[in-house]
Each structure stands twice: as structure tokens, then as C-alpha cells.
Amino acid sequence: MSPEFVHRQASHCESGAISGLLAHHGLPLSEAMVFGLSSALSFAYLPIVKINGLPLVAYRMPPKFIIKGLQKPLRLKMRFETFRDPASGERRLNELLAAGEVVGMQTSVFWLPYIPEDLRFHFNAHNVLACGRDPASGDYRLSDPVVESLVSCPAPDLLRARFAKGVLAPKGLLYYPVSKPQAPDWAKVLPAAMRKTTRIMLDSPLPIVGIGGMRWLAKAFDRLDGEREAAHARMFIGQVVRMQEEIGTGGAGFRFIYAAFLQEVADRLARPAFGELAEQLIDIGDEWREFALATARMIRGRDPLVPARLGERLRTLAGREAAFFRDLRRAL
């Protein structure tokens, strides 16, 4: 039987979940290290993927990217299981829990009763760990990385959340390590992970990913009509900030996590240059926060609704991030 699972609150669900799983299996790595090592930082503007009629904007790589990206550097074998029907998905989860396993799950946010009512939207790429079940009530004991402490969740609700349909449907996904994670050769894996991030941000062949994606989004802002289609413009810019600040941890949040990662890199490799790069990225994160603030003021009508002005801010951010990632590349 494995030892008691220790819950720690994190800033982002997937990096928090996997960091918790690794610690449980004897390799304590911070959330920031997990995030950086899997090259999870990104930016993507997906005008075709619509959520409630508004486009998807992501500030990190797609779900499961972190978990999958850690397998190679940590020589870790993860097992992923999805299910066609909910009943077998539930049975399998109970089996694993009975065997003492702590199990990662992908869920919808909407059906989880412990999430505050106002935050429950149909967002399907949330990550939660199941670490036990109350024998009397059948409720699951969950470690939700973005919640302060362990929570319990009735079985029917969890089942719904695991088998929600729609964009990024989780299909009951369960994941857990089947081998012991090992501390890597840091001098090798860290530069490789950072190089990958610079490539994603700077060299993407798709105009919707990386720095190019920010500029593309800025163009979409320019096209919004703040006068004749004010309602739509407000929803659109609000969506960008919702995706930035609330789902997971936000655009600024991800920049801060990556900066924390760079600080750890500076220590592990005894290369103070990365500490200076972290400073630069913290500034960029602060600027993302100002962007969010400016947007909120327009939504509330405290400032006139001129989306192009936000587009201008986005272009500045794109320029600063481009410069940052070029500096990071040179430092490697």
C-alpha cells in the first residue's frame, strides 16, 4: 500500500496534478519544474475551435502535453486509459483506487459540485487526482490542484464530469505512472526543454501558434467593431481574458510559472543568466495582467470600447515575447 497522499495547492491543474503524482511516487519536483521541463508554455489562437460561439485562446500547450512530455526526461512510463462507456470507466477507477493507486483524471469543470457555481463552465480539460473513496457514502476523495484542500465528490457527479461531451471530451481518461520516475541528467534535459519552448514560440509554421498567434489575435481585435457590434466585441475580448486569467491559471500566470522554472534552472545549472531572463519574463507577465485590466475596464465601460487599442497592446506583448525567447535561445 502506498503512503498517504499529500495535497498541495498549485496554480495550474495539469502541472499541479502531475507534480503531486510524482511526489507521491518519490520524485518531488515543483509545479514550475514540471511545467518548464515539459515545455508547456505556449500561445495559440484557434479561431475555428468555438466554445459557446467564441474562439479558443490558449496560453499553454494542449491538455496531456505536460504529462506526456515528462515521460522521456524522467524515464517515466505513464499509463493512459480512456473508456467507451461510463460504467467500465467507473469500475476501472474503483479497481485502481482499491489497489492503493493515486489516479489522475481529466474532467469537465461544469459537473464538479465543489467548484464555485460561477466558475462552472463546460471546460473539459481539467485535471484532478483521485486518492481514495469513502467506503460508507461511496464519495471520492479528490485532490484538485487548484483548490485549497482535499475535497469529496459524489460518484454520480464525478462520472458525469469524466464523461462530459464536447470540445476536448475527456472520455473518462485515467492516468498513472507504471514505473518509478527518476531524477534526470539536468544539464542535458533542461536546455533541451527550453530549446523546445523557443522553437514552439518562434518557429511555428502555423500562424496561429506562438508569437505569430498573438499577432493574428491582435488583427482579430482590430477587426472588432466597438460601436456597431459592441455586445459581440465585449464578449470576444472578455473571452480572451477569461481564457487568460481563469481557466487553469492564465496567460500571465503561465508566464510567472515559467519564470519560476527559469529561477530553478539558474540554481540547478549554476547559470545566473537564467535568473536574469526570469526577471524579463516576470515583467512580461505583469504586462499581460495590465492587458487583462485594460480589457476589463472596457467591458465595464470605465474606458471607451476600442478593441484596436487592446490589439495594439497585444502586438507590443508579441514583440516583447519574441525578444525574450530570442534571448533565451542565445543563453542556451
Binding site: 481574458v241 477569461r242 486569467e245 467591458i299
Partner: peptide, 17 residues
């Protein structure tokens, strides 16, 4: 990591939705 009771900006965009 620091614990935050929340930011008005988030409240505005969440309320909007």
C-alpha cells in the same frame, strides 16, 4: 505561491459570461 482572495478583473470577465 501566494494565496489570493481574487482579482476584480477576473470577477468582471467571469460575471460577464
Amino acid at each position: 505561491l501566494v494565496s489570493s482572495a481574487g482579482w476584480e478583473v477576473e470577477e468582471i470577465v467571469t460575471r460577464q459570461a
